[in-house]
């Protein structure tokens, strides 16, 4: 009977920890222009904002959203971020990139810049701003040498905030905005061995953003 109670407690603890590793994503979408016009030959480019060294948008997040957009149903042609930035050098570096659509309008007045946009068939340029960070953590793990191994418990909360601004290249106007907020708690219990139970906050924020962008653009 006692063994059954222990089993039940263990299962309940494991289930609640696994459930707790889940993330919660909130998405907000705002359409500014009524028409979205993206055909099969058109491409988009996703760029991370990195003008502030403290809050740079991670390259792996941009790459993740790009990969999700260019695979599966309703695929979209996505120009890789680094390829685009190198091709447009020096006008899309962290310190020189246009911060607003008027500045982009000035840039595309340069014939060679406009030609690059035309050569790549870029219809929409999407700026993604935000990042994922650990907002708090608690607990401790002690790993003594020898057969005792590790013992303890650590948990932390991650939060991902991203906002995508979709610029229409043909109309030189803001088409819309999509923002995602994802939260999740990760746990690291250790009894002899540490067992990481990680919340996939950034990956879920990536999947959420990609799904919304596909819906927006198709």
């Amino acid at each position: 009977m006692r063994a059954q109670i222990y089993d039940l407690l263990l299962i309940t603890l494991a289930s609640s920890l696994l459930a707790a590793c889940n993330t919660v994503t909130v998405i907000d979408k705002q359409k500014v222009l009524d028409t979205i016009d993206l055909n099969d030959k058109d491409s988009i480019v996703l760029l991370g904002r990195r003008h502030s060294h403290q809050h740079e948008t991670e390259s792996d997040y941009i790459s993740c959203v790009g990969t999700n957009l260019s695979t599966g149903n309703e695929m979209i042609n996505v120009i890789p971020e680094h390829q685009f930035i190198d091709a447009m050098y020096p006008y899309f570096e962290a310190s020189t990139a246009p911060m607003n659509i008027d500045r982009l309008g000035e840039l595309v007045q340069q014939p060679l810049i406009l030609k690059k946009f035309t050569d790549y068939n870029i219809r929409y340029l999407i700026w993604v701003e935000g990042n994922t960070e650990t907002i708090d953590n608690s607990g401790a793990i002690s790993c003594a040498g020898g057969p005792a191994g590790c013992f303890g418990f650590v948990m932390w909360n991650d939060e991902a905030h991203y906002e995508a601004k979709i610029w229409d290249i043909n109309q030189l106007a803001l088409s819309g905005k999509i923002s995602t907020e994802t939260q999740g708690t990760s746990y690291l219990p250790a009894v002899i061995l540490p067992i990481p139970l990680l919340a996939s906050v950034k990956a879920d924020a990536c999947a959420g953003m990609a799904t919304q962008l596909k819906e927006f653009l198709k």
Partner: peptide, 10 residues
């Protein structure tokens, strides 16, 4: 150097 060159041009 990359940042510097971009800033010089712009």
């Amino acid at each position: 150097f990359r940042d510097l060159a971009a800033k010089i041009i712009v």
